[in-house]
Design a protein around this nucleic acid. Structure first.
Lengths: 199, 199
DNA sequence: GTCATTATTGACCGTGCGGTCCACAATAGT
DNA sequence: ACTATTGTGGACCGCACGGTCAATAATGAC
């Protein structure tokens, strides 16, 4: 009954996400977004509202993707303890080859906007709460499997792992060599997850 | 022979630093800087060049202050192991009462500008290299004092502690409660610095 | 084919930005 | 007191930004 959309909304969100991830919120102009999306300005505004709303949707899109991946890793890895170690290793590989270390979009956004935009802050808070629970579940599994001492507080340890991971993500942006980064992630994993599996 | 400055350069740098810390680089306008410094636009440009240069000086100012404080804590604390624990505790107290958790200016700046401004990135890299060395020295001291096992790699452990600290700094910005934050810092300290001193 | 409806485009707008400049103020030397 | 020199403040500039809008294109219903 009317002219159909010529673009896929998710595709645009992905493109916007990449752009915001590369440059940050403030440093991304509508021109940039037009370029990476291939859309005219009017189409973007008609479809998403304004820059901030597009950003928020792209950010939510990113978070969902991240959580999906987290869930997959945590549940698909045979030994739970290995999954936990992977959490600390993952940021090291991210973009190691391409040389561009842009960290985590949510972390970047929280740093840039967390003080000024309550919605971004709330998104960050909720995300890390969920992450903590997912990780804690995995810790319980590791305890059941005997990979971790049973007495330790799963939520507390989950928070420590998450915090360490965020530390690694950040340090990866500071020009640390991949080798140093790898060693650090390993060191943190060894300290936080005492029993580890082989070489 | 000429009209003297009516302001103290360091004072302006401190004011600018606070402003950039509160709002970030892009979200700070020259108007903001005029307001917090009490200076006219012309004076700022005459004294500091442009916005970016003022920012870089404010950032360097911040870094120097931070390192001074780090040095002081690391050397003035009687037992080195306690100093190391303090590194992880410090971010928790920072701004806990006022409620504003603005993290670390250098970290914020690196997240916002690290990809786009090589100078900021270089500053971050150099800073963390220095921090790592300072912490490593303190670790050696802790080993000499018997507070830490002597066999562990000081630099590696220093990097792990620094990374964990940055993780805590970041998590403090995500709306975590002070209690959870405190528990996390304690947990990380306990895992990274096995031997600790009393209740 | 006609029409109603929605998508698309790009010209256009007002605003706030970083940055410049100039008239004026304040000092030190003589 | 006069002058040279530098600091100060704010008016001013051009620009790029986010955002709007109207003309046009593409579809489905009938």
């Amino acid at each position: 009954m009317a002219r159909p959309r010529a673009f896929d909304e998710t595709q645009i969100l992905n493109a916007a996400q990449e752009q915001f991830w590369d440059a940050g919120y403030a440093a991304t102009s509508m021109e940039d977004l037009m370029q990476v999306s291939g859309l005219g300005k009017g189409s973007i505004y008609a479809a998403f509202g304004d820059k901030r709303q597009l950003f928020l949707r792209a950010l939510r899109n990113y978070i969902e993707g991240n959580h999906e991946q987290l869930r997959r890793v945590l549940s698909d890895t045979p030994r739970a303890i290995d999954a936990l170690r992977m959490l600390l290793d993952a940021p090291v590989d991210e973009g190691a080859d391409s040389g561009v270390r842009r960290g985590c979009l949510l972390a970047n956004s929280t740093c840039e906007l967390g003080n000024a935009d309550p919605e971004v802050l709330a998104l960050a808070h909720a995300t890390y709460e969920t992450s903590t629970e997912l990780i804690a579940d995995c810790i319980s599994r590791a305890q059941d499997e005997g990979g971790l001492p049973a007495q330790s507080d799963a939520i507390g340890l989950a928070r420590a792992i998450l915090t360490a991971q965020q530390g690694i993500v950040y340090m990866s942006r500071t020009g640390m060599t991949t080798a140093a980064l790898k060693a650090t992630s390993r060191s943190l994993a060894d300290h936080l997850l005492p029993a580890h599996s082989g070489a």
